[in-house]
């Protein structure tokens, strides 16, 4: 199989990675592009599996160990799949001073998971993040999903739980409709 991308020299032998190949055609031979490639791969597949890392290694000639080293250095990269909704709970200074720990407690309590974990139904993943930059609305969390990012500010234990409950209800409705 040859790549449809004009100018691509990647070889593109694995149909499973067709979407990634399109991106790699652009980056594979440009030095210093590893982080950009990993970002695109994560965008497409949601996380970086061992297979994806091996495939990127084959295509770029960079050793898997090195790719793994880069992937684990940066907090953005995930080696495990995540839930449909990614909760990014801000732990910045302003949020800390304004009670981010209590919000985390409420979220953990509501979802029955800890930082970095995913709920059993695969709907939520909780990630604590360093700072979302909305400090005057502290405490803050961002909920990332396919339908976009939504930021919630001036949270209380109750309002944080309410946000999650509403998403749960919406999901349950959709599941029923299907």
């Amino acid at each position: 199989m040859t790549c449809e991308n004009s100018g691509c020299q990647c070889g593109c032998s694995n149909p499973e990675y067709a979407e990634l190949d399109a991106v790699m055609g652009k980056y594979a031979k440009t030095p210093g592009s590893l982080i950009s490639i990993l970002q695109k791969a994560q965008d497409i597949y949601g996380f970086l599996s061992i297979n994806t890392i091996n495939y990127i290694s084959e295509m770029t000639g960079i050793k898997p160990a090195k790719i793994y080293g880069v992937a684990t250095f940066y907090s953005q990269f995930r080696l495990q799949p995540i839930g449909k909704y990614l909760i990014m709970l801000c732990k910045g200074t302003a949020c800390h001073v304004n009670g981010a720990d209590k919000i985390e407690e409420a979220v953990c309590d509501e979802l029955n998971i800890n930082d970095g974990e995913t709920t059993k139904d695969g709907i939520f993943t909780l990630n604590n993040v360093a700072c979302l930059g909305c400090c005057s609305l502290a405490p803050v969390m961002m909920v990332k999903s396919e339908s976009g990012d939504e930021t919630f500010g001036n949270l209380t234990k109750e309002s944080a739980k309410k946000v999650l409950k509403e998403i749960r209800q919406r999901e349950a409705k959709e599941a029923k409709a299907v």
């Binding site: 200074t93 302003a94 700072c131 930059g133 909305c134």
Partner: peptide, 11 residues
């Protein structure tokens, strides 16, 4: 790469 928690002027 505005990483200081609590600073958002660059953003």
């Amino acid at each position: 790469d505005e990483g200081d928690p609590g600073a958002f002027m660059d953003r």
